[in-house]
Each structure stands twice: as C-alpha cells, then as structure tokens.
C-alpha cells in the first residue's frame, strides 16, 4: 500500500510540474477530470460493495450550490473553506437518506438514488432565488487568502484540485486496504454470509453512501468554482450517468484508474463536442458500449491483473 501511495504522490507532483507548460485546452479537461474523478471515486467506493448509485448528481450539486452560496452570500472567499464546506453539506444531505437506501440493492438502489437526484433537480429548477434553470455565476475563489492572478487562474485551480485529489486518494487507498475495505468486497460477493459472520451490511453500505456523498460534494464544489458557474444540471440524471460511466471505465480496484478514466472521458467529450457537435451523444454512447464490451473490469484491470494478495486492491 505504501508503494502505491508513494507512486501516486510522485505522479501528482510530476503532473503538477508538467502542467505549468500545459496548453489551456489540456488543462481544462484535466481539471475537470480531477474534480469529477473525486466524485467517481465515491461511486467506485460503493461499487466495491456491489451497489451502483445512479444519483450522485444530487450530492454533486448540493456541494456545488453550498460552496457557491457561501461565496455569494456569506462572503467566504477561500477555496480551502468553500470546498470542504461543500463536502460537509453533501454528507449532511445524504445522512437522513442513508439508512433508507441501504435497504436496497441493484436496480432499486440505482433507481432510488436517481429519483432523489431528479427531485433535487426539480427543486433547483423551480427555485428562482437559486437562479432557476440557469443557475448563477460564482466568482473565482482565493486560495489561502491569496487572489489568483488571471493568467495563473487555470493553473491555480488545477493545482487546488490536485491537492484534494492527493489527500482524498490517500484516504481512500487506506480505506480500501483496511478491514472494512475487504469486507466491502465480501458484501459484493455474498451479503448473507457477511451478516452471518457478525457484521452489519446495512450499516456499512449506509456509511459508504455518506462518505461517497462527502467526496461528491467536494468534487461538486471544485467543479463549480472552476467553471465559475453552477446550475441545476449538476443534479440531472445524465450527469450522474456520466459519472457512473467513468466508474465502469475505471473498474473498482485501482484509485489511479478513476482519474485516468475521468480524463479519458473528458477528452472524448471535448473531442466529440468539437468534431461531432451534433452527434457527441452518439459518440459517447458508442464509446460506452465498447468499454462495457471489451473492458468489463475497467481500466484498472489492465495493470492490476490477477494478483491475489495484492496491496493494490
């Protein structure tokens, strides 16, 4: 595990350094990949126990809106306050729903989470004080009290995202390798046996839902602050769908694969929007089919392989 973490940290440092010379068209998808990747990491967390949330849009949006509202109305400008606040808000939003959702699996879990995200979408669209269906703009945040100079803004936001990626990925890696992380994999295989061995499956899935919500909230806040704009679409089911798509592409074994998958998706999306503006959904759909068909275990399986007692679990 320590080897994976060290490798990860070194990679992040290298990427951060390389990004100084990166062109803008690459930097933006990379930043989006980082902030969306954090959300997808939460989906992967739940997928390890065999549940797929089709409604992370709900907690993605709540994190974004919370950060944006704090910036706009509470006069808080520092990203290092806004982003964790977004995470916290989303975790609190998820908390009352967690025990209820934890009773469901498979299609039901997916559809219930989807419904919740659509309810939030409906509320956001109809609430004029929150900007209605147009949403509203967010000013660029400060970082540690410092204003970001305009020409360094994009890089600054990218490094901010990388910082959260680093911190959260370390935490998740430790979690995946912990006792709880192993039992999560067992839940996916045979829930009944886990209960018979003495652990509460419902409590674990419920907790994971809240943790994933925290991650989504942070990802949402980062996304909103980077884009400078938040809107109800963050909670729309197609947003959730794309995040799940990234999770499938990543697989549930490697943390790094999550960011790689998100990045690939962002590139495919930008590429499609640029060259096939009228058929980018077609391109995305075809890409998804190819991934499901030929990479059933996701990208992570390419380098994790069949290692049994692996510290890269």
């Amino acid at each position: 595990m320590f080897r994976t973490i060290s490798l990860g940290m070194v990679s992040i440092a290298v990427i951060a350094l390389a990004s100084i010379w990166s062109p803008k068209w690459l930097l933006f998808p990379a930043t989006m990949a980082a902030s969306h990747g954090i959300v997808t990491l939460g989906i992967v967390l739940m997928m390890r126990s065999g549940v797929v949330s089709f409604g992370q849009g709900m907690v993605f949006a709540s994190g974004a809106y919370c950060a944006a509202l704090l910036a706009k109305h509470a006069g808080i400008n520092d990203a290092l306050v806004l982003v964790p606040a977004g995470g916290l808000a989303s975790a609190l939003l998820a908390l009352p729903f967690a025990p209820l959702l934890a009773r469901y699996r498979a299609i039901f879990f997916a559809m219930l989470t989807l419904s919740l995200s659509m309810v939030l979408y409906g509320i956001l669209v109809k609430t004029e004080t929150l900007g209605g269906s147009d949403g509203f703009n967010v000013a660029r945040p400060q970082i540690l009290g410092m204003e970001l100079p305009p020409d360094m803004a994009n890089l600054g936001m990218f490094w901010l995202s990388l910082a959260f990626v680093g911190a959260l990925s370390i935490m998740m890696r430790i979690y995946f390798d912990s006792s709880r992380g192993l039992v999560a994999l067992a839940i996916r295989e045979n829930e009944l046996r886990v209960e018979y061995l003495g652990s509460s499956v419902q409590r674990m899935i419920g907790t994971d839902f809240v943790v994933a919500a925290f991650l989504a909230g942070i990802g949402g806040a980062l996304t909103g602050l980077t884009l400078g704009h938040i809107e109800p679409n963050f909670s729309y089911w197609t947003t959730s769908g794309e995040l799940v798509f990234a999770a499938i592409l990543a697989g549930h074994h490697s943390v790094a694969a999550v960011y790689l998958a998100s990045f690939v998706l962002e590139l495919v999306r930008s590429f499609s929007a640029l060259y096939f503006p009228n058929t980018w959904q077609l391109a995305l759909g075809l890409f998804l089919l190819i991934v499901i068909r030929f990479l059933p275990q996701g990208l992570g399986s390419l380098w994790i392989g069949n290692r049994q007692r692996s510290d890269k679990r």
Partner: peptide
C-alpha cells in the same frame, strides 16, 4: 443487471442523436 442498464443508457444516447 446494472451493467445491462448502462448498455441501454448507451443505446439511449445513440438513439437521441
């Protein structure tokens, strides 16, 4: 089951366009 739902989601995207 859920993977198949994603396949139909991909189909939905394709048919939209």
């Amino acid at each position: 089951e859920v993977l198949l739902v994603l396949v139909t989601y991909a189909l939905f995207l394709i048919l939209e366009d």
